[in-house]
């Protein structure tokens, strides 16, 4: 995958993850269930999405080295 396509992939993936975080899957109105590790739904789901974007960031960083 060339640099341009790679960045399209990362951009679309981050966009989808961010978009999901604005849906009732992550922020259901007034709902706290189900709890996970003692944390309410919005919090653990939000943490999960943040970590997923972080993983994408690390991948983007690792694959942007060949521009050297």
């Amino acid at each position: 995958m060339n640099s341009k396509n790679r960045w399209i992939f990362f951009g679309v993936a981050v966009f989808i993850l961010a978009a999901v975080s604005f849906t009732p899957l992550v922020i259901p109105y007034g709902v706290t269930e189900p709890y996970f590790l003692g944390l309410p739904r919005t919090l653990w789901a939000g943490l999960g999405i943040s970590l997923s974007i972080y993983v994408l960031l690390v991948l983007a960083m690792l694959t942007s080295g060949d521009q050297r």
Partner: peptide
């Protein structure tokens, strides 16, 4: 949290 990770990308 979500926003700042996207900001880093």
């Amino acid at each position: 949290g979500v926003t700042d990770m996207a900001l880093a990308v």
